[in-house]
Design a binder for these strands. Structure first.
Ligand SMILES: [Mn+2]
Ligand SMILES: [Mn+2]
Ligand SMILES: [Mn+2]
Ligand SMILES: [Mn+2]
Lengths: 219, 219
DNA sequence: AAATATTTTTAGGCTTGTCTAAAAATATGT
DNA sequence: ACATATTTTTAGACAAGCCTAAAAATATTT
């Protein structure tokens, strides 16, 4: 239906929209897609012709309902494939994204449905991100950043704000995975570092750089 | 590494070579790929530049060792994905080929290896075709056509010569699947039809058109 | 051997998606 | 308000992969 490239543009614009940005500008799309602004302008015009987004010269773009559906569907496929790679093929959570970038473009609605069923209808991918439903609904998670959490609550590690392989590998190294429970025992205003108590009374320190990229939910 | 299109050309040339044809001519490639001879000539020149095949003007092409490896690897991926779709996702054997045509181009050696392991190292795909090993070895099956088999031997349905969905659906309809055992009770020279006895003494007739597309092995 | 038919290649052009360089529009600073 | 900086668009070009029409080579008939 839509090309690999078109789906990537739509997905990028969708993700930028979700990050608060009201209307999406050419340069930010170019940066995410590692391409040039001129190329983005070209593609934007084509997507606008196909009614996948609204575009006014020099004013940025916004997805149409149709464009959003294509984007969300691509995200759905991406995250389902990540679940497959992680749960079934035993890839690490730092390895799945790159392969899912390819698999998300496989075009078969029946395949997506059967994969969903095979995985037992997962609600979140290996990074804690929610999986859109078949009809395009995304359940917003009420996760908060670890650096914003209050002390003396039981927190459950539930996602990441930084999806890079290096960050995920760092979490592997310090044995912090989805589901890890912790309580904040100390917040240091000076450097933003946080001390937590894990199960078995083990304690651990997070630098601000780490604490601001860990998503937790209050148990 | 190689494009979707390049892999499809190499796979096509490989399959034509396997079918006995010594050197492969432009028109036959065009026919399989549903494209035009002029396009084939263009691509052949590019593949020759990349040392994936040997080409002499007007003399046809033959894969190099390197080209053969890429082709066989694509076939390996295709058949492993067919196994996944059939065994795990419960697709029908008439549905898997089309989706595998997309999945065979996913580029990750680790993914292929892990998929192979997840499927418990299958040796044949849902159509009875052998799965090439990681290092490119294909074990030739000693299957024979049902129409060429002798009476009074126990035959095991082991593959198909016609891979079209309509043929596979016909076999579904008459409940002939891989593993079905039979003995030929009668061969009619007049129309090439064959009568067989199945388990439970059920008898069944195959027209020549069907019998010449069923592969069996002698038990 | 010559004529005819078929196959293959070339020539030129199209679409998709990309690029660089330059022009135009918008935003920012004083 | 005007000058400067930044962002965006346009213009023109390129590679991949495809096409049609014509030319060249090869194969088949007679
Ligand atoms: Mn991902
Ligand atoms: Mn993810
Ligand atoms: Mn197939
Ligand atoms: Mn098959």
């Amino acid at each position: 239906m839509y090309s690999y490239t078109e789906e990537n543009y739509l997905k990028t614009i969708y993700k930028l929209s979700e990050q608060g940005n009201e209307s999406i500008n050419t340069n930010s799309i170019a940066e995410v897609l590692q391409t040039k602004a001129a190329s983005v302008t070209d593609m934007i015009k084509k997507l606008a012709d196909k009614k996948l987004l609204n575009y006014e010269k020099y004013k940025g773009v916004a997805l149409t309902e149709r464009g959003r559906k294509v984007a969300v569907d691509t995200v759905r496929k991406h995250r389902l494939w990540e679940c497959f790679l992680y749960d079934k093929l035993k890839f690490g959570w730092d390895e799945v994204h790159e392969i899912a970038e390819q698999l998300e473009h496989i075009n078969s609605e029946l395949l997506t449905d059967k994969l969903d069923e095979f995985l037992d209808f997962p609600t979140h991918d290996p990074h804690g991100d929610p999986i859109p439903s078949k009809n395009g609904v995304i359940k917003k998670s009420n996760f908060i950043l670890l650096c914003d959490a209050k002390p003396n609550q039981t927190l459950v590690m539930s996602g990441v704000a930084d999806h890079t392989a290096v960050f995920l590998q760092h979490l592997n190294k310090i044995s912090v995975v989805l589901g890890t429970e912790m309580q904040i025992t100390e917040k240091n205003d000076y450097d933003g570092s946080i001390a937590v108590k894990l199960s078995g009374n083990k304690s651990m320190y997070f630098s601000k750089d780490v604490a601001k990229n860990i998503l937790v939910k209050v148990k």
